Amino acid sequence: MAERTGPYDELREPQKRGQATEAILRSAFVVRDIPILVPAYDNEPYDLVVEVGGRFHRIQCKTAYRKSEGTVAFETVSTRKRGDGYDREDYDGRAEYFAVYDPVNDSCYLISVSDAATGKMEIRFREPKNGQRVGINWAEDYRLDEQLEELRQP
């Protein structure tokens, strides 16, 4: 884990971290023999398209960050700086999935845009101290391999 996450942690510029996340996620699909298409321009609401089960899926890549003990989170909206402030837009109808790289655990997740929380989504990888079980987005439910297996089903 430290082999990849150590250098990743040294990237301070958000754009470089985003580029590293995209590269890590692309390689995760490639090693699973999933064909990838990449838009020619950087202004699309998705970062890549994958073909799974004979269908194409638009993917928005996101970087998770430590939220609290046992959880990571990622933004489920696009934020663009405008002259008069910020513009936030969701991905509903503009992408089908978030591919999320979690540098805390060196893990990859695939989450349907329609299932994602609005604004920000937390993923829990460790049991909470209070024993809560309801309303939690468990990491194992979104692991890349399990989600790809579901997408391969007719």
Rank of each mutant, 00 (worst) to 15 (best):
V77P: 04
S78P: 04
D87L: 11
K81D: 01
V77E: 09
A99M: 10
E89T: 15
V72Y: 04
S78F: 09
R80K: 15
F98Q: 03
Y97C: 01
T79H: 03
A95Y: 05
T76D: 06
R88A: 07
A73P: 07
G70S: 05
D84C: 02
T76F: 09
Y65G: 14
E96V: 03
T71L: 04
G93E: 01
R80G: 07
K81S: 06
F98N: 00
R66T: 13
A64R: 01
S78V: 08
G85Q: 09
G70Q: 02
A99C: 10
E89P: 01
Y97M: 05
Y86W: 15
T79G: 12
R66F: 05
S68H: 07
F98R: 03
A99D: 12
R94L: 12
V72Q: 08
A64H: 06
D92K: 13
D90E: 01
A64E: 07
T79Q: 10
A64W: 04
R66C: 07
R66L: 08
A99R: 07
G93D: 00
Y91A: 02
Y65S: 15
K81G: 00
A99E: 10
R94C: 06
Y97I: 03
R88C: 05
K67A: 06
S78H: 10
Y65M: 08
Y86S: 12
G85K: 09
D90A: 02
A73R: 13
E89Q: 11
R80A: 13
E89I: 14
G93Q: 00
S78A: 12
S78M: 10
R80F: 15
V72P: 06
A73T: 06
A95P: 01
R94P: 03
D92W: 12
D92N: 08
G93I: 00
R66S: 14
R80Q: 13
E69Q: 13
Y97W: 15
K81E: 13
D92F: 10
G83E: 09
A64M: 04
Y97E: 05
T71P: 05
Y91F: 13
G93N: 04
T71S: 15
A99N: 10
A95H: 02
G83F: 04
D87Y: 12
K67C: 01
V72L: 09
Y97S: 01
A95W: 05
G83D: 15
A99G: 13
S78W: 11
K81N: 06
G85V: 08
D90W: 00
T71M: 09
Y86K: 15
D92P: 00
Y65T: 14
E96Q: 05
R82K: 15
G85R: 07
F74A: 09
S68V: 12
E89H: 06
D87I: 10
A64V: 04
G70F: 15
K67D: 12
D90Y: 02
V77S: 09
E89S: 11
R88I: 03
E75Q: 15
G70N: 07
R82C: 13
T76A: 09
Y91T: 08
S78T: 02
S68T: 14
E75P: 02
K67G: 05
A64D: 11
D90N: 12
Y65E: 11
E75M: 08
G85W: 14
V77C: 05
K81V: 11
